[in-house]
Design a protein around this nucleic acid. Structure first.
Ligand SMILES: [Mn+2]
Ligand SMILES: [Mn+2]
Ligand SMILES: [Zn+2]
Ligand SMILES: [Zn+2]
Lengths: 148, 148
DNA sequence: TAGATAATGATAATCATTTTCATTAATAAT
DNA sequence: ATTATTAATGAAAATGATTATCATTATCTA
């Protein structure tokens, strides 16, 4: 869990200014293990920083996503959800999504096998379709413990 | 590509009535190889059947999805897109999604290896999280030929 | 053929996200 | 430090996709 200075540095590298909204949003995301929507983030920070605007939350999340700091999960319907993306491959994971209540569960099983297959597939597809692959998602849909 | 009677029969099984909107939407989907949004479907059918309502298109797609006849693709932003799901495993495929123009490309490479891994993962996860897995998605995100 | 009710379609409502634009604040230059 | 430059912010309105409402219509059952 990198601290302020780490982020501050990475922001400067990207010609982006280090601002209070950005700091508190990153701070919240690094303290939370959940997958939060823009409105949830806004709500959680509003008490601490009532001046914050929902628009800024959206803009900040989009920036963080563009810079690769944050992963966006779009589970069918409902708002987009965001989580910090860890540095190395240790954090690589995918999701189980409950189609009834929207719960999102992280899983990290068979990551190595997955990455092997993904890599092979990526290479083949990139060549075959002249497509520049930047990321991949895997998700399992179904009913969680409570909803089944 | 199953015909009217096939669908009609499967609808009856599900206590759903066989109506004109349902017939023409299924017919369109089975003639199109694309991934169409509700509005695109509405637009394509409007000439033929001007009485059709966009609401009905949404409702029909949701029903088809719920019955498992149709697959929904939610590529980050933009409207949901729908495609008929083939009967057997011959049709099993996943997607390459261009994050710039939204283009969706089907791929069917390494399906067997994928299914092996998916199956193993599914079993493990279902047990570990007491989760009822009903479906899975794999998608590669990046830039298509035109957009890279 | 008639009755029961599922399905439809117009409209309004909702929800998530984006755009606009005047104001503020962060950084660079002095 | 002070100032100038311009990115970032936040309020408000706009947009886009989807869903809810409800009176009307069509399908299917008896
Ligand atoms: Mn996660
Ligand atoms: Mn497809
Ligand atoms: Zn659930
Ligand atoms: Zn493209």
């Amino acid at each position: 869990m990198p601290g302020r200075h780490h982020w501050q540095h990475r922001f400067r590298e990207n010609v982006s200014r280090w601002t209070l909204p950005r700091e508190i949003i990153l701070d919240l995301l690094s303290r939370s293990s959940r997958h939060m929507s823009a409105k949830e983030i806004y709500g959680a920070l509003y008490a601490l920083y009532p001046g914050l605007g929902l628009t800024t939350v959206y803009r900040t999340l989009e920036l963080l996503h563009r810079l690769g700091f944050v992963q966006k999960v779009t589970s069918g319907d409902g708002p987009g959800r965001y989580e910090l993306r860890g540095e190395g491959e240790k954090d690589h994971h995918h999701h189980l999504i409950c189609t009834k209540c929207g719960r999102i569960i992280d899983y990290r099983d068979f990551v190595q096998e997955e990455l092997d297959l993904i890599k092979k597939t990526e290479e083949t597809l990139a060549k075959k379709h002249n497509f520049l692959i930047q990321d991949h998602n895997i998700e399992f849909l179904g009913l969680c413990e409570k909803c089944r």
